Simulated scan of single mutants.
Amino acid sequence: MHEELHIASLVVHSTPARRNRVAATISTLAGACIHAVADSGKVIVTLETSTADEMTLRVAEIQHVDGVLSAALVYQCADRLDVMNEELSDAPT
């Protein structure tokens, strides 16, 4: 069986007053990276996991963080890790 890489991005909505605490909590989750925190309460997050089940669990963990109003999945990609690490030629085909 081949090792996989799952990548997802989410927009997490919280109240403006709790945005920094929400971002700090999410940043402690394995594979989570915070890219932006807006004054309005939006938090931009990417997740990397090795299985679909782990991704589902991580999204559910974010949805249950105190102060999160919603977590919307924006993008998800999954492929074998060896394929993701292939070098692509810049030469025209």
Rank of each mutant, 00 (worst) to 15 (best):
L73K: 09
T46A: 11
T93A: 11
R18P: 02
A17F: 06
D53Q: 13
S27T: 03
H2D: 14
I62D: 05
V83G: 00
V37C: 02
I7L: 11
L88G: 12
S14D: 01
S27F: 00
E86L: 15
P16C: 11
T51E: 10
L69R: 13
G41A: 03
M84E: 05
E48C: 08
M1T: 08
E86V: 14
D39E: 10
V45F: 14
A60M: 05
C77P: 00
E4V: 03
E54C: 05
Y75D: 06
P16T: 10
H64A: 09
V68A: 06
E4D: 10
E48W: 08
T25A: 15
A32H: 06
C77F: 14
D82I: 11
A72V: 08
D79R: 06
T56G: 14
E48Y: 10
T25K: 13
R21V: 14
Q76W: 04
I44E: 00
D39H: 08
I26E: 04
V65W: 15
H35E: 05
V83A: 13
S9G: 06
S27C: 00
L69Q: 14
I44W: 00
Q76D: 03
L57K: 08
A8I: 02
V43N: 02
S9V: 04
T15F: 02
V68C: 09
V65K: 11
E48G: 10
A91W: 07
G31V: 07
T25F: 00
E4L: 12
D66P: 03
I26W: 03
A71S: 14
A78D: 00
S70N: 12
L29Y: 12
I26G: 03
V43G: 02
D82H: 15
V22S: 02
I44S: 08
E87N: 13
D66N: 14
N20Q: 14
E87W: 08
H13E: 15
T51A: 09
H64W: 09
R80F: 01
E87F: 10
I7E: 02
E48N: 10
M84H: 00
E61S: 08
A52P: 04
I62S: 03
I26S: 02
Q63Y: 00
H2Y: 11
I34D: 02
A71G: 06
L57H: 09
T25C: 08
S89F: 03
R80V: 04
